[in-house]
Amino acid sequence: MADARQTALSEALSEPVWPASPPLFRIAGVALAVALLAYPLVFTGTFSHHLMIMIFLHAIMAQSWNVIAGMSGQISLGHSLFFGLGAYASAVLYVKLGVTPWVGLVAGMSISALVAAAIGIPTLRLRGHYFAIATLLIGISAQIIFQRWEWVGAASGIWMPIERNNPWLAFQFHGTKLPYYYLSLLFCTLSFAVVWFLQRTRLGMRLLAVRDEPEAAASLGIDVAWHKVVAFMISGAMMSAAGTFFAQYVLVIDPDRVFNLELSVLALLMVVLGGTGTLWGPALGAAILIPLSEFTRTWFGGTGGTVDLIIYGILILLICIYQPRGLLSLVTERLRRRVDTL
């Protein structure tokens, strides 16, 4: 009797927590990678490149929001703060000191992580809405401060000088969007790697425990507040990298663009739409919303600037009421049911 129980236990323990992906998934993964790498060579139009770059950029933002909301269960409504910090950190270093944006990228990420800690330590020990409101207030405060800060160009922002001789060192490419395409794809892949890795490490496991059962996690000796702060720091650093990339892509930044509340809204929406806490949900959200946004802006022209936001708002509402786990769960639940019946 005791033996049987012991073998059952050891069998259960030896079973991998994350089952190996079925071969079908691996083939699909390889096909996706090949398709994404070949895409810009097949579709050579500038707009088709731009669209994909925007999708990758927003997928990074969504993954960043996914880390704080999906992995630790806290809702940030001011994620534009980190986007702006990343954009400004690299731009200011480049324009004022001539430091390459690659260093600016790291500087922005470090600053963002520190700022995230400074916000998170007092607010993340309280209940969730305190944190949500704090981030909303800080996101808007950052926009106000940068609009009035003369040294960084106040409301008119920063124009990056054109540099043609050393495109890789200066992180700016003229005439072709190909380098931007592959860089954004690389950044996007890295952001996926962070989430993939987090889901499989002890830190990620503890974060999930903190999200789902804070009391139980605390009783097991997990420092709940500190884990949320760490998640927020990682999330802030990721958003900051997206900001730096955006600054180097458009080469003109101003507070209304990079600290806009709309960026925080977008990050939230892509994740909630696709599936919070999942690896592929944010990408799905970005792949649906960014083309929608680009096309409504083309169809409705200047005045249609808000049509996409109306649709977004209604979409969030519907998702929250009818499918709070996101669109991806429609697929995964069906797959799981099929696997169970087999």
Binding site: L268, I310, G313, I314, C320
Partner: peptide, 18 residues
Amino acid sequence: PMLAQICATFGLAIAIRS
């Protein structure tokens, strides 16, 4: 969950404002 609660009223805000 709190996520859905916060996002729902936030989504409503965006829809009304836009």
